[in-house]
Design a protein around this nucleic acid. Structure first.
Lengths: 213, 213, 213, 213
DNA sequence: TATGAATGAGGTTTCATTCAT
DNA sequence: TATGAATGAAACCTCATTCAT
């Protein structure tokens, strides 16, 4: 009776999870609107009616999906940047590589793709995601940059805008490869992307003592 | 030879354009699936049946929309980077500012938003857009970077991957503000973003002779 | 564009009426809830979708049905009892016979049956009917009785309650025959009922040796 | 021989009754079709599955409800009119007041309301009720009237039709107040209704210069 | 060219009933 | 006896598309 816990007994206790798994695949494949509840049920191996034992509506499945993906983030981010000492560029490298690696897994990237797609037309979903993820993650990065500047490791750039310069290339890279099928001509894409990007980020693209014609 | 070309049917030929305009707004507002042909017709000021005089199906409207947005690009890009001489960083600044400004107009950004949304679930649309836009624009940028390296203006970065570092922040910035309503705390967002980004891009974030406190 | 006028052209202009006719039959036969929109459409000779061109919902059909039946009443009742002079028992006889005859036609009685059935569970319908019919008809009868008393034709009975004594037997008779299939052993039921009832009624409400002032 | 008959399962046998109680309320509130078995179970304080231990189907609950309401009547009516001697108008007064009082209790009136509602669309229910109630009660009243005539207390009216004149006003009054919310302007409705009605009735059915045996 | 009435397939959701436990 | 998860058959309603005019 703790509010929203669906009941079951006969079969697995993982039913809602299975529904979410099935739905995620289909929502990404065809989009939320074009996905039939019937299809979700079939893929989850239950009847259409059973879906409604766990979720009040198709929309609730979408929301459940986002909640499930989003809730761990709030917790994991908390202690990240807190009281980090030393060169923030090291931390940046580590985090970027880690995040890049994880998102490069198409399975992980499904959720951002889904959220982005739906948030474009649904302000409520946009807000849910913003509050649960962006408002948590961005301040941490901003603080990190701000401290890096104060400590003399970084030039006095605008911290908020710089976050976009740090993360943007990775997002674009993912979009280009995952959505438009655009891979760089050589393999190991994400690793090399992060390396190249960090190099530019830290050092800039300018040649050391650049000489023109 | 008689009524084949009536003189005064004002904007009779503009009808398809009006349908596309109406559809674009609605597709972005509600999504393709959730938009009814009736709504498109209403907003275009014609009857539902008339829509089918110009487009074979609802899907054809979407495709027409992307075609219309995409076709000018192919032409405009052609001569861009050809035989540009001198410091590519100047060109980069100019182009980035220009493109940034244009896309910052929500009206202009509608198309990328729509394309992205639909491309995520529709490989055919993804391919259309990739061929018509990405495959045209990226090589130009790659060539520019490559030449900049050869001419000694730029460090020997990976040109393909660097394109992502150049464009990514702008795309992310647009997504964050247009989709998630996230504005940097100070105004004049896009202008400042481009400035900050170019600064980092060209010079890197590292402090000149950076050492900690 | 006068608010709610459904459009058509291809076929009859009587479409909404046909839908109502079909619905009335089915609602009485099976009840509102148990009637399928599909059945209504079939009986009306149109497609299920077409029903929704004329009525926004199944409920709207029920409401339309009641409206159609109810609207003429408001008009017809107006001038009835106004300025009637003389023995009200004559008028009563006439009206009771007329109304009895009409309601004895099962087709006419369908609407009261339907209204009663739905009003029992639906206060909104109850109110619609009360306002449109009962609140119109009862005051006329009450006034008639009141005047009959004042003029010395009737004994000083309670006018409001007497209305029930006048109309009740007819309603019960209809219910018994139309709903429970209970006919008096001899034929010509309604005629004889009204005669018998009037006999009882008049000799009862008459002033002992009543004659007018 | 062990747990076959647990000693303390309070009211285990009362379960079907509780289901019927719950169902009656809900059927009247929302109608039979609109009532879910789940709601009945909830209100009865048992599980949905348990309902099916006592009733084969939702319809069986309705039938059980009518049976329960109807069975006592058959017994109670039996000896009523038998060998009644003297002025039938006294008996009539008594019975009418008693019945009127009882039915004026909304709780008691629920059953007739339900029966009426369902009988309108269900001939089987109509017949059940007719046989169990009407066919029992009416002959008694008819006989009473007939005897009253023979004994010289009543004028020679049609006994069958006169039953309607006796009972009709009470039924109509109940319908008007219970269904359409129409109360006479002064309070104590049912009491006054019966008084007024009896006054009209008796003075009407009375023999001109009524003399007893 | 233009209309809008008409269709009918199909979508989400509900709910009586069953059955493993 | 009792539960409640699971089923699956509809039901209401929508909407892309067609077509007579």
């Amino acid at each position: 009776m703790t509010a929203r816990k669906p009941k079951f007994r006969r079969r697995a206790e993982a039913r809602p999870e299975e529904v979410l798994d099935a739905a995620l695949d289909l929502f990404i494949e065809r989009g939320f609107e074009a996905t039939r509840v019937d299809d979700i049920a079939n893929r989850a191996g239950i009847s259409k009616g059973a879906v409604y034992l766990y979720f009040q509506s198709k929309r609730a499945i979408l929301e459940g999906l986002i909640q499930r993906a989003v809730s761990p983030i709030a917790e994991n981010v908390a202690g990240l940047g807190t009281s980090f000492e030393g060169d923030p560029r090291h931390l940046l490298s580590m985090v970027l590589k880690m995040v890049g690696q994880q998102l490069a897994d198409p399975h992980t990237f499904k959720i951002p793709k889904l959220v982005l797609r739906e948030a474009i037309i649904d302000p409520e979903i946009a807000e849910t995601y913003r509050k649960a993820v962006l408002d948590k993650v961005i301040p941490v990065m901003v603080a990190l940059i701000r401290k890096g500047i104060a400590d003399g490791y970084l030039r006095p750039v605008d911290p908020e805008l710089t976050v976009r310069s740090i993360v943007g290339p990775i997002m674009l890279h993912l979009m280009m490869s995952e959505v438009f099928g655009l891979q760089p001509s050589e393999g190991l894409a994400m690793d090399r992307l992060v390396d190249n990007h960090l190099d530019i980020l830290i050092n800039g693209v300018s040649a050391p003592r650049g000489q023109a014609s």
